[in-house]
Design a protein around this nucleic acid. Sequence first.
DNA 1: TAATCCAATGTTGTATACAATTTAGTGCGC
DNA 2: GCGCACTAAATTGTATACAACATTGGATTA
Lengths: 229, 229
Amino acid sequence: MAPKENARDTASTKVAEALAEAIHEHRIAPGTKLNEDEVGEIYGVSRTVIRAALQQLAHQRLVELKRNRGAFVARPTVKEAREVFEARALLEPTMTRHAAARMTDADVAVLQSHIDAEHAALAAGQTGKALQLSGQFHIEVARIADQSTIEEIIAQLVARSSLIIALYWQRRAALCESNAHHALIKALANKDGALAEELMKNHLLDLLTSLDLREQTSAPQSLSEALKV
Amino acid sequence: MAPKENARDTASTKVAEALAEAIHEHRIAPGTKLNEDEVGEIYGVSRTVIRAALQQLAHQRLVELKRNRGAFVARPTVKEAREVFEARALLEPTMTRHAAARMTDADVAVLQSHIDAEHAALAAGQTGKALQLSGQFHIEVARIADQSTIEEIIAQLVARSSLIIALYWQRRAALCESNAHHALIKALANKDGALAEELMKNHLLDLLTSLDLREQTSAPQSLSEALKV
DNA sequence: TAATCCAATGTTGTATACAATTTAGTGCGC
DNA sequence: GCGCACTAAATTGTATACAACATTGGATTA
């Protein structure tokens, strides 16, 4: 989350982050075409930096690039949704166990502050921000486990998860019911690795089953695309 | 491996692949600076496409971008090496079990052909190509498991592993002794998921322990960099 | 009327030009 | 001789110009 120390292209990274936020908050619908000139004028930069930003987002699978045809906001399929959560299920429980062993008081405080901020955002009706914070919780766990490589992978998967949740969310009331996160913090604070691991496993399963993953979803952007398949 | 259907930027992707090959074959030493003009002239394209290629490679962690200072061939640390193999250890055994359940005769043939090609490359002294094929084996397993998302993650980790192996390889004689791969194929062909999973787990452990992961490695590129820390 | 071809328009891919920053070297002062 | 400041060269960051490709709309023809 902290702006990468030596990441090149501050300008394009900023644009990429702004676009990512818009995508996660569903202000841009999946499938929408991102015209380079248009986006460039919005952010007041040239196509050069827009293209770099779009490439970054493509690597995160938040947009899809089609050669000679442009960039489109990603529309994750049901299969992709399952796969993303399968990957998380393989990585995060173990990370949680490792995190429990390394947990410090400061870490507990950080996680708790994330939950608090999430609640505040929910109360303020900022579901987009709440979703982002909820995801950040999972990334923090990997950071605490001191596994930066896996942390980056999880960060990517979390970003994709946000888009997936925005698309397939079913029971809209409880957003990633923070009970799960709360129980997790407790187990982590007690350094109960086995319990924390199990809780994370179940939490991810809950997340997945809370999605409506029947085929057919949001209406496609264009008729031609609808009839193509 | 198959050139992504709709990946944009054929030109920059080709350059990125050429550079990646050179990096993996150790023709460019880790830490080397990749001057944009220079690389551009070599491949006969403008800096525009070089920069796109370098950004792609940065996402794969094969090069590191430093703002206003340029691109450098990545020099994975010992910690990073451990982390990459830890990630693989979490993902690949399960993938192997899934692959066993879905294995077809065609899949067996594909895997076998990979091993054969690897042996041929080794016999011809093309260790770089052999290493690449050896890695491809692992990616194929994920493909057979029909988990394209995890397949992509593993592909990235394999690419980084190649660089790590090139840096930290210890017993140079036997390259990823294909006995392991051979035994794996057998278990997969027999649809013995439990055995295949165990073999993969051990294979990854073997790989990791075959590395010389004591701190201090290749000499730094420049004195200033050596004295900086 | 419907289908097809072609031209005109718009969009992306690439190269080049310019601006901002870093790096290297030179000379000055101590 | 050593260190510092300053200038010039080199390199990256960004914008613009041009080329290649795709799309759209209308005209033509059956």
